[in-house]
Amino acid sequence: MPISRAELPAEDAAALIDQLCERWSDAKAIDRASDPVRIDFASGSCYLQAQPDKLLVVVEAVDDEAHNQLEGEVDNTLDALKGVELDIVWEA
């Protein structure tokens, strides 16, 4: 299973997690009781953890194609929430 992670500067990472969960709540299974928060997609999962001054995002998928698609969905959603295009660098 391909896994990648990114750390994004964020003044209020918890608020970003809230917004992401709200955005995906109707189409995804979300476990907000866990730390990190887990969001299940059809072909993988996204883990979100608020840390001081940053948001840690981990993407895990069943194969490379699904992994790339899931990274893209997370990128696009974060860009839309922040209102600016982020330069997200995923690390394997």
Rank of each mutant, 00 (worst) to 15 (best):
H67I: 01
D18W: 03
R32W: 08
H67D: 02
K82N: 14
L81P: 05
L8W: 03
L16C: 02
L56E: 13
A80D: 15
N68K: 12
P52Y: 05
D64E: 15
S4Y: 02
A33N: 14
N68S: 13
V37D: 11
D12A: 01
P9V: 03
M1S: 13
V58R: 15
S25H: 10
P9Y: 00
D53G: 03
E91A: 12
I39N: 00
D53M: 05
Y47K: 07
L55I: 06
G72K: 10
C21P: 04
K82T: 15
E91R: 13
A29L: 15
V57C: 01
K82C: 12
C46N: 11
D79Y: 14
S43T: 10
R5K: 07
D75F: 01
V74K: 06
V89G: 09
D87F: 03
P2D: 09
P2R: 07
V59R: 11
V37W: 12
R23Y: 04
K54H: 09
G83T: 08
R32G: 08
G44S: 08
L86T: 09
L16T: 07
G44M: 04
R38H: 05
I30G: 04
L55M: 10
R23N: 09
Q51T: 02
D53W: 03
E71H: 05
D53L: 07
D31K: 14
I17R: 01
E65R: 13
A33K: 15
K54R: 15
V62Y: 00
V37C: 15
D64G: 07
I30C: 02
N76V: 00
A66E: 01
A14C: 05
E85L: 13
Q49K: 10
A50K: 01
D31T: 10
P9H: 06
E60S: 12
D40W: 02
L78C: 06
L56F: 10
V84A: 14
A50D: 02
S34F: 06
D75T: 07
Q51C: 06
Q51L: 09
G83A: 07
N76I: 04
F41N: 08
L48K: 06
L16H: 05
E73S: 13
L81D: 07
P2H: 00
S4V: 00
A66V: 00
E85P: 07
A10F: 00
D87C: 07
D53S: 09
V58M: 13
D79R: 09
K82M: 12
E65A: 14
D75S: 04
W24R: 10
E73Y: 12
T77S: 15
S43G: 10
I88P: 02
N76C: 07
E22M: 12
V59F: 03
A33T: 14
V84H: 13
A80E: 15
T77K: 06
V37Q: 11
L20F: 04
E60T: 05
A27L: 12
L48N: 07
V59W: 05
D31S: 11
A80W: 09
A14M: 06
E22Y: 06
D18C: 00
D64V: 11
E65F: 12
G83H: 05
I39R: 09
G83F: 08
L8A: 05
D79A: 13
E7G: 03
R5A: 02
S25D: 14
W90A: 04
L48M: 09
Y47P: 00
P9S: 09
D63W: 01
P36G: 05
A13E: 03
V57K: 03
D35Q: 14
W24N: 08
